[in-house]
Simulated assay, not measured.
Amino acid sequence: MTDYDVYGTSSHTARELARVTGSCLGLVFTEHDSYYRGIYYRADSPDCEIEIQPNPIPGDDGDDDLYVTEHPTLQVLLMTTTPASSPALRAQLVAIEGLVHLKHESW
């Protein structure tokens, strides 16, 4: 089974959240530039994949679209993919000031 969680914040930029999260979890985030997603950050470990990106993403019409439309006030998203439920990871992430858990899916 795979778990997928989404968190959001308006307290940090994507770069700041990558720095804070990396320090908290002992991970190194690498910056990527995507035509579809804009600049985002990614860290991989044996236990999880974490991506941090802006909620507003470049739209085809020159205006930004929202990646998570149901939370328009959140400026930055953090997404985790883990092979199994990870309550410890969830606890570490919600302990980051300003970061809130938005969604959980398992498949």
Rank of each mutant, 00 (worst) to 15 (best):
Gly98Pro: 05
Pro54Asp: 12
Ala95Thr: 06
Asp33Trp: 07
Pro46Asn: 08
Asp3Lys: 12
Pro83Thr: 08
Ala84Cys: 14
Met1Asn: 10
Tyr35Glu: 09
Glu49Lys: 13
Val68Arg: 12
Gly59Ala: 05
Leu66Ile: 05
Tyr67Glu: 11
Gly38Lys: 04
Thr21Ser: 07
Met79Arg: 11
Thr30Phe: 15
Ala18Lys: 00
Tyr4Gly: 02
Asp5His: 15
Ala18Met: 03
Thr13Gln: 03
Val6Phe: 03
Gly26Trp: 08
Leu102Pro: 08
Thr9Ser: 11
Ile39His: 12
Glu97Leu: 11
Gly38Val: 05
Ile57Ala: 09
His71Phe: 08
Tyr67Cys: 10
Leu93Ala: 03
Trp107Asp: 15
Ala43Pro: 00
Tyr67Trp: 13
Tyr67Lys: 12
Tyr4Trp: 13
Glu97Gln: 15
Glu70Arg: 14
Arg42Pro: 04
Trp107Thr: 14
Val94Ala: 06
Thr30Cys: 06
Ala84Asp: 11
Tyr41Phe: 13
Val94Leu: 05
Asp44Gly: 06
Ser45Lys: 02
His104Leu: 14
Tyr40Glu: 04
Arg37Gly: 14
Phe29Gly: 03
Ser85Phe: 06
Thr80Tyr: 02
Thr73Gly: 07
Ala18Phe: 05
Cys48Ser: 14
Arg19Trp: 01
Arg15Thr: 06
Val6Ile: 13
Pro58Asp: 13
Val100Phe: 03
Val100Ala: 12
Ser45Glu: 04
Lys103Pro: 04
Glu16Ala: 07
Ser34Gln: 10
Ser45Val: 02
Tyr4Thr: 07
Ala18Pro: 01
Val6Asp: 00
Pro54Arg: 15
Thr82Ile: 03
Asp60Pro: 12
Gln75Pro: 03
Ile52Trp: 00
Ser11Asp: 12
Pro58Val: 09
His104Met: 08
Tyr67Ile: 05
Pro58Asn: 08
Arg42Lys: 11
Val28Gly: 13
Tyr4Val: 07
Thr13His: 03
Ser10Arg: 14
Ala18Asn: 01
Asn55Gln: 06
Glu16Met: 04
Leu77Val: 13
Tyr41Met: 04
Leu25Met: 03
Pro46His: 10
His12Thr: 07
Thr13Ile: 03
Gly8Leu: 05
Ile50Met: 06
Glu105Arg: 12
Asp65Lys: 15
Leu25Pro: 01
Ala91Asn: 07
Lys103Ile: 12
Thr21Gly: 03
Val94Gln: 08
Tyr36Pro: 00
Leu77Gly: 07
Asp60Ala: 15
Pro83Leu: 08
Glu51Gln: 12
Leu93Cys: 03
Gly98Leu: 03
Pro72Lys: 03
Arg90Thr: 15
Thr80Glu: 01
Leu99His: 00
Asp65Pro: 00
Leu66Phe: 10
Thr69Tyr: 04
Ala18His: 01
Val94Pro: 05
Leu78Asp: 05
Leu17Tyr: 00
Gly22His: 00
Gly62Tyr: 10
Cys48Ala: 15
Gly38Phe: 04
His12Cys: 07
His12Ala: 11
Thr21Lys: 02
Ala91Val: 01
Gly26Thr: 09
Gly8Glu: 04
Ser45Pro: 02
His104Glu: 15
Glu97Pro: 09
Thr9Gly: 06
Tyr67Val: 04
Gln53His: 09
